[in-house]
Design a protein around this nucleic acid. Structure first.
Lengths: 340, 340
DNA sequence: ATTTGTGTTGAAAACCTTTTCATGAAATTT
DNA sequence: AAATTTCATGAAAAGGTTTTCAACACAAAT
């Protein structure tokens, strides 16, 4: 590679001091036309590009935001990313992407590395790090916006997940379903979606069955395998609450391969309303969350926090993001005679 | 925010010199156990994190790769990104994402900014910058891998686009279609997909009609509008070659809304085989390209180039990426009696 | 007892900027 | 004409590291 030139080279070629070069390039102090002309010419000739790192070292700003995100396969995340990207790029910030693969070790490692890079802020999506650890690692050290994370500090963005899943489950119940399964992930810790699911069953007196709650993490294979197992049960469910659309889609595919018709023989309700959910084999009935807008909000917010040096020492949330249930074609009312 | 501590603070607290701290942290030179113990303790107490920028300033490595990508909405790109991310993260590199929105001005701006940031390398996807400009901007200055870009220097990754589109079109022809449209973008410059399309028509003596070539850029709205116009023609095509799956999907949706059945009344063949193309309303027949693998390849290659300081002054391509035509359900053989 | 070698260490230069401070010249005021 | 203000400029410090060089203490070899 060609040697890249420095401000020194420019100064020498233009026959002025380093400070003068800096001044004309940044417009900080007036400089004589004569000098600035010489500088511009030298910059042109040398194709000089100021070293952003040296600059950041002084300004203590990197114009970089780290996005900690579990995965890029579930379309939810790229869609969110798109929103974030849109919001921050117009303010001149850049995004550095850290793919955690749902691993808390990786997440921890990446957060530390980003801290070393002195990024101006973090957008942490679906964190899998414990609250204590999170507090110890980032609280008071940098600006953070959490999306779908349950941190007890910092700015938090998400919808009311309990209520939303409650609504989804209620919908299935109201459509006459009595045998309702849920498939999702991370049932050990706090799981708002599971909580909403349980709450609805309880409130409407629908039997809860342990064998109807399917924990399959985030891998397509596991979802497929567990779904097959679930649907092979002698007394299989007539409705499934999937904790996200990605899962719902995998379930639909598994059902299709088993020759089970949706929604005639199996109803599915999803969660997220990712952009493809309405162009599927069977358009998906789902909880719609304004993904793109959430991304934009997160992007705007992190910049606001950075600029104003706000620090949320307690959990802060302006309000829950609104969501809505979108009826499409993956859920069917149970036949009257089949009820019970 | 808390004041972040520097190597100086550590040195002072541990009562050793700066150099010693650096040495124990980097393991460059042996240090007495006594000293290193003190250093580790001080690091712990101060929660010291070395400033990556100061470090890069010396090492001249940022461990950062810029990905210049036109868009995040077309699923092709997140999928590619996933591959790139997978390949580079295991080598300790991070990705900075630059979303150009298909605008060459933005692309230029971002490339320059990334040059200022002294990223170790670039992966430029579907560039819309002219060859001369590209040469002037990056040739010899940094490591680059191009994906789907037609640069006459640097490492280039893509499949044989002419042949692939030729095959797609040929397929439609062999299925008995005589009235074939194509819908895509950027017809002014070099457009390999268009070239392949034309070549097939010519070779198999199928009428070429100017009103059957639809240029709609990359926006869903334009695709939808132009498709509606196309399908409202008195003598509308029976088959469409879409230059990518994203476009094919938009066409399918438009057709659906017009009450036109696919494939009975209209056949569509796509290009890319993005992961959702087989779970659509009508599973899409398409040219399958190993998107994820291409991403991985691009990631591996850029690191190899960075590490070995290779510089491809001419276009270099190991070989064209293999592709295949995947038959699904969006194309139908024309009825014999309808032929002609 | 002198030389040679080994193992630890600190001072200072280097990386590339921005910014403060001081200086000197020119222009303005008294 | 002297005093003051304004303007343009350069030298040097600062930002936080790594690395080179020199120095020192001590052990080993002559």
């Amino acid at each position: 590679m060609d040697k890249v030139s420095t401000i020194k080279d420019v100064a020498k070629l233009a026959n002025v001091s380093i400070s003068t070069v800096s001044r004309v390039l940044n417009g900080t102090t007036p400089v004589s036309k004569e000098s600035s002309d010489k500088v511009y010419k030298a910059v042109e000739v040398l194709d000089y590009k100021p070293n952003a790192m040296a600059r950041s070292l002084i300004s203590k700003k990197t114009m970089t935001i780290a996005v900690i995100i579990p995965n890029l396969s579930n379309l939810f995340f790229p869609e969110l990313l798109r929103g974030i990207s849109k919001a921050v790029e117009k303010e001149g910030y850049f995004l550095i992407i850290c793919n955690t693969d749902y691993s808390s070790e990786k997440e921890e490692k990446y957060i530390n590395q980003m801290l070393e890079r002195r990024v101006d802020g973090f957008i942490i999506v679906s964190s899998s790090i414990s609250n204590e650890k999170l507090t110890q690692m980032v609280k008071g050290k940098t600006s953070v916006v959490f999306v779908y994370s349950y941190a007890d500090f910092g700015y938090n963005i998400m919808e009311d997940g309990i209520k939303a899943t409650y609504d989804a489950t209620k919908y299935l119940i109201h459509m006459g379903h009595k045998k309702i399964a849920c498939v999702g992930w991370r049932f050990k810790g706090v799981n708002v979606r599971y909580m909403g699911f349980r709450k609805a069953l309880e409130e409407f007196n629908v039997d809860f069955r342990n064998e109807y709650v399917i924990d399959c993490g985030y891998s397509k294979e596991e979802i497929t395998n567990n779904t097959i197992k679930l649907l092979k049960m002698k007394d299989r469910p007539t409705g499934i609450v999937a904790f996200n659309d990605d899962t719902a889609i995998a379930i639909m595919m598994a059902a299709k391969n088993m020759g089970i018709n949706i929604p005639e023989e199996l109803s599915i309700i999803g969660y997220d309303n990712i952009s493809i959910s309405n162009i599927l084999l069977k358009p998906l009935t789902t909880i719609s969350v304004p993904i793109h807008k959430m991304g934009v909000d997160a992007g705007k917010k992190i910049i606001e926090i950075i600029d104003n040096g706000i620090s949320y020492s307690d959990t802060y949330r302006e309000k829950y993001i609104p969501y809505e249930l979108i009826e499409r074609e993956s859920v069917k009312a149970m036949d009257i005679d089949k009820l019970n």
